[in-house]
């Protein structure tokens, strides 16, 4: 007969505390990567700064927003959303790398909370997005961005952006867990991101797009969130767009978290 050791009975409250602790450990570890590979953070900041400069100074002269707002005020909220949307690729790449390195295999044999690997990854990406948004706000002000809405509305817009990015992260977590390696994860992510970020109202007003594109470009999640933020930041008819953005975000979270968790559980490679 085998010896049965006493099973440690863990109180539910203790379980939750442990799960949070594990998530914090994994989050910390993922954030450490940014200090070890600063090039990653550099890229996730340089690309949006380039976009701001490109659209502000190169294309900006030729683009005329519908209302009389200066283009820079039209542009910045869009770049915020576009940046965090692109940043979600790093969630899929990071998880694919963890799988590839065999780290996930190690995590599976540890007495840690199952969800911590995913929660820690998406939390780290949320932290990165906070930094990204702060820096971009600075760059925005430097190139003449002058949001006319209230500070509260501005913060609400930032909250909306971060929440949206967090929801997207879970979707891209699913992709990362489904990809055989990090390169494929990246390749799989871009066909989704390009239409979402460019066929959108992030950079240009949609009324100059062909009719068949306009509907998509107006109501897809990146556009909806960009419009909501724009209205919050520079004033406008807020409610409907904010509600739509929150609906998209909630929908993503409700669908993608279980999907990603399911994928994580079943991706025993």
């Amino acid at each position: 007969m085998s010896v049965a050791t006493l099973a440690p009975r863990v109180h539910p409250a203790r379980r939750v505390a442990r799960a949070l602790g594990d998530t914090a450990t994994i989050t910390r570890r993922n954030l450490l990567h940014y200090t070890r590979v600063p090039i990653n953070l550099f890229f996730s900041l340089v690309q949006p700064v380039m976009f701001v400069l490109l659209f502000r100074y190169v294309f900006g002269g030729a683009i005329h927003p519908p209302s009389k707002v200066p283009y820079v005020d039209f542009l910045l909220p869009g770049v915020f959303v576009q940046t965090v949307a692109f940043g979600a690729v790093s969630t899929s790449i990071g998880l694919a790398e963890d799988l590839q390195q065999g780290l996930v295999e190690r995590f599976r044999a540890l007495p840690m909370a199952r969800a911590a690997v995913l929660a820690g990854r998406t939390s780290a990406d949320l932290c990165r997005n906070v930094v990204v948004v702060v820096i971009m706000t600075g760059v925005g002000f430097a190139v003449g961005f002058r949001p006319s809405g209230s500070a509260t509305a501005f913060l609400a817009a930032v909250g909306l952006i971060l929440l949206f990015a967090y929801a997207l992260s879970w979707g891209f977590a699913f992709i990362g867990l489904s990809a055989p390696n990090s390169e494929t994860a990246q390749v799989m992510s871009f066909p989704l991101l390009f239409p979402l970020t460019f066929a959108s109202s992030s950079f240009v007003p949609v009324q100059f797009m062909p009719g068949w594109l306009r509907g998509f470009a107006t109501y897809q999640p990146v556009s909806v969130t960009a419009t909501a933020c724009r209205d919050l930041m520079i004033g406008g008819p807020v409610a409907t767009w904010v509600v739509q953005s929150v609906l998209w975000t909630t929908g993503f979270l409700v669908v993608m978290i279980p999907l990603a968790v399911w994928r994580y559980r079943s991706s025993s490679r």
């Binding site: 570890r29 450490l32 990567h33 070890r36 590979v37 390195q101 065999g102 780290l103 295999e105 190690r106 044999a109």
Partner: peptide, 13 residues
């Protein structure tokens, strides 16, 4: 405790 066939370590840490 498990040490798998291929070292499962975090390269960046």
């Amino acid at each position: 405790g498990l040490a798998g066939q291929y070292a499962a370590v975090d390269e960046h840490l």
